[in-house]
């Protein structure tokens, strides 16, 4: 809200003064310094699911796909966005048992999540809380990314609840409450997503939460009035580790800083070393309710 208030007010003052004075926004040429592409890894392991990951490359911000590096190829997504895929990357996943499993370079589309992936394993994973996986990603251009991820414990959602306001017609809306209990012995981090219908595409709300204020106590996350009658709301609670929480916050802060003169740009706090990206194990609970 703070950012909205600031931008809104300054914008309002600007608009007030700008009446009849033309646009206050214009294209500019920004000569950015030389940027060396890095390997970008995105890998979310889940118990019982065949491991998949995506390896791409970061590119100069204003690059429009003109300069694709040798041993990489440009992949145009359905929305027109171009992503640079290195084709010379070998990936190894080390299981908690110590066994090393190579993941094959087999680019495709996950039918369940609708996500692109570049590398895939062969067997669903078995994972217990506290076990640690390791990832090794290496190309033929001396770029080498490594990382480890520990399986978080399962935290159940205690309850979900909603409440409509007293208005009618289009203005009749409900807030939604998701409640769970935080364990007291540890510092815990969560990601709570609310979707309308089946989880896919854009979520309705997506919050990263730490237990700084409610360690060891029940906690309820409440939305604004935003859901309509007959909406099906799915609440998904991920219990995540501090590294993934930190990565999520840094990506959000970095995005927010692009276009907000009051924000201090944040560097990306990757969970991996040697490149950019995230390697983590997801454990979640889910509840679905139809709002009547």
């Amino acid at each position: 809200m703070r950012k909205l208030v600031i931008i809104g007010t300054l914008g309002g003052l600007g608009v007030l003064g700008a009446a009849g004075c033309g646009s206050l926004r214009k294209d500019v040429n920004v000569p950015l310094p030389q940027y060396d592409n890095q390997l970008v890894v995105e890998c979310y392991l889940e118990p019982g699911v065949v491991p998949r990951l995506t390896v791409t490359e970061s590119v100069p911000y204003l690059d429009n796909g003109q300069a694709v590096a040798a041993k990489s190829q440009a992949l145009t997504l359905s929305n027109g966005q171009v992503v640079q895929l290195p084709t010379d990357v070998a990936v190894k996943l080390t299981l908690p048992s110590g066994r090393v499993v190579p993941l094959q370079f087999l680019p495709g589309l996950d039918p369940t999540t609708g996500k692109y992936f570049t590398h895939i394993g062969t067997q669903p994973l078995a994972a217990q809380a506290g076990q640690t996986f390791a990832l090794d990603v290496q190309d033929t251009r001396s770029r080498h990314v490594t990382g480890t991820a520990t399986v978080p414990t399962f935290i159940p959602i205690d309850s979900v609840k909603y409440q409509f306001n007293n208005l009618t017609g289009d203005n009749k809306k409900a807030y939604f409450q998701t409640k769970w209990t935080d364990p007291g012995a540890t510092t815990d981090y969560y990601r709570l997503m609310l979707h309308k219908g089946k989880p896919s595409n854009n979520s309705e709300t997506d919050n990263d939460i730490n237990d700084l204020q409610f360690n060891g106590k029940p906690y309820a996350q409440v939305t604004t009035y935003r859901f309509r009658p007959n909406d099906t709301v799915t609440a998904t609670l991920y219990h995540v580790d501090s590294l993934y929480y930190s990565f999520r916050r840094s990506t959000r802060e970095a995005r927010n800083a692009n276009g907000n003169p009051f924000a201090q740009p944040s560097t990306i706090r990757s969970t991996v070393q040697g490149g950019v990206g995230v390697f983590t194990v997801l454990v979640h609970d889910q509840k679905r309710v139809v709002l009547k």
């Binding site: 310094p33 911000y61 970095a254």
Partner: peptide, 29 residues
Amino acid sequence: TLPQGRFALQDIYQGAIQPVPLYPDRNQY
């Protein structure tokens, strides 16, 4: 501080893939 690079992040569920800015240097521009 301006971003010098960007990368595409899909996240847990496939959606609108947003570019994430990379800011290696403070106040370089």
